[in-house]
């Protein structure tokens, strides 16, 4: 008999209540049960960072959490980063401008990670950023566009541009 539980999760500000098998990861739950396919699974063993979401304000691997563990918690996914009217987050804008993405597969995890990172490190150096995304693998960009975008977004978010 599959072990199924009912959970309540707030995702991108919207409350969901759903039945979920306990072995289901948070990543699979977001993608399959809620249809939020912006969160990507690149390795399912915690290294690539593509699956990163923001749980109660902190960036975490959604492949390394069970959906049941999100019961009663708040999750933000890449779909929840843009404003109400769809206006891009400054980091998204900067990624666009600095060619911070190619295939776009690592992008959701980069964005969610960096949004949380910038909140705690509003004025990072290039080195800080490179270490912050050392847990996010990108096979396409060589990271430079991502780093440049983050440097700029930090300035924009502090009103320094």
């Amino acid at each position: 008999m599959p072990d199924i539980r009912e959970i309540q999760v707030s995702v991108n500000g919207e409350d969901h209540s759903a039945k979920v098998e306990t072995r289901t990861s948070l990543g699979d739950f977001l993608r399959q049960n809620l249809g939020l396919t912006g969160t990507h699974l690149g390795c399912e063993h915690g290294v690539c960072g593509a699956c990163t979401v923001i749980l109660d304000g902190e960036a975490v691997r959604s492949c390394l959490m069970l959906a049941v563990q999100a019961n009663g918690h708040e999750v933000t996914t890449v779909e929840g980063l843009a404003g109400e009217e769809g206006e891009l987050h400054p980091l998204q804008e900067a990624f666009w401008k600095h060619h911070g993405l190619q295939c776009g597969f690592c992008t959701p995890g980069m964005l969610t990670s960096l949004v949380a990172f910038l909140r705690d490190n509003p004025n990072p150096s290039e080195r800080d950023i490179r270490e912050a995304i050392s847990g996010n693998i990108c096979r396409c960009t060589g990271y430079q566009g991502i780093v440049d975008a983050t440097l700029e977004a930090a300035k924009v978010m502090q009103g320094r541009v």
Binding site: T37, L41, V78, A82, L88, L101, G104, F105, T107
Partner: peptide
């Protein structure tokens, strides 16, 4: 700036999975 990006940046890409 790339035309494919707004989709991909907001989680609206469409990969096989």
């Amino acid at each position: 700036q790339r035309m494919e990006d707004p989709r991909l940046l907001t989680g609206h890409g469409r990969y096989v999975d």
